[in-house]
Design a protein around this nucleic acid. Structure first.
Length: 180
DNA sequence: GATAAGATGTTA
DNA sequence: AACATCTTATCA
């Protein structure tokens, strides 16, 4: 069991999004440890009209410009949190929306970014937490690598701008992905 | 200070 | 297909 180093996140955002499939998300909360395998991701970069960082460094999007390997948690639609991993080459901005987990312990359904955060008790208090430190309440571990032919590439969900980008990735035939 | 839209999920 | 519900950004 070991975490991915900062260098893992300091690469092209789309590449990292693909590589995050099969990795393990660990969440320590209320004395318990919850974890699951990432089965669905979406990439968002600075040059992408759908990305929060597209229009520059606003107060909310500032996290996406910070050091790769930290968390970006934001609030949407009045009731849901969404969890992202910040990942981009030096001097750029970008993040990866974690959309679904395959649960390994008894965790509630996590097929969708809002439900995922609710199930793992992820809130904006965890914004900018270090995902490369096993002492964090939230971090990512190296998991099983997913063979290329099991990775499905498709369009992202729930956005109008940039909807033609093929930047959503999920594991083929996995029952835990959202919007089957 | 006001307003419109949003990386969603549930219900009908 | 409607709606619950509130932050953020973009105006004035």
């Amino acid at each position: 069991m070991s975490v991915m180093p900062h260098e893992f996140y300091k690469r092209d955002t789309v590449e990292v999004a693909k590589d995050l499939l099969g990795c393990k998300l660990v969440r320590k909360t209320e004395g318990k440890t919850l974890s699951g395998i990432i089965v669905e991701t979406e990439a968002y970069t600075q040059d992408d009209p759908a990305c929060h960082a597209y229009r520059g460094e606003t107060p909310r999007a500032a996290t996406l410009f910070k050091h790769p390997g930290i968390a970006y948690v934001y609030f949407i639609y009045g009731m849901y949190n969404c969890f992202n991993a910040v990942a981009h080459p030096e001097g750029k901005a970008g993040g990866i929306l974690i959309r679904a987990l395959e649960t390994v312990y008894a965790v509630k359904k996590t097929n969708g970014p809002g439900k995922l955060c609710k199930a793992l008790n992820i809130t904006r208090e965890l914004n900018e937490i270090d995902l490369t430190n096993p002492a964090s309440e939230l971090y990512l571990e190296i998991g099983e690598s997913v063979p290329e032919n099991k990775i499905i590439t498709t369009t992202r969900i729930g956005i109008k701008n940039g909807c033609d980008y093929l930047w959503r990735f999920y594991i083929k035939d996995n029952p835990y992905v959202s919007r089957k």
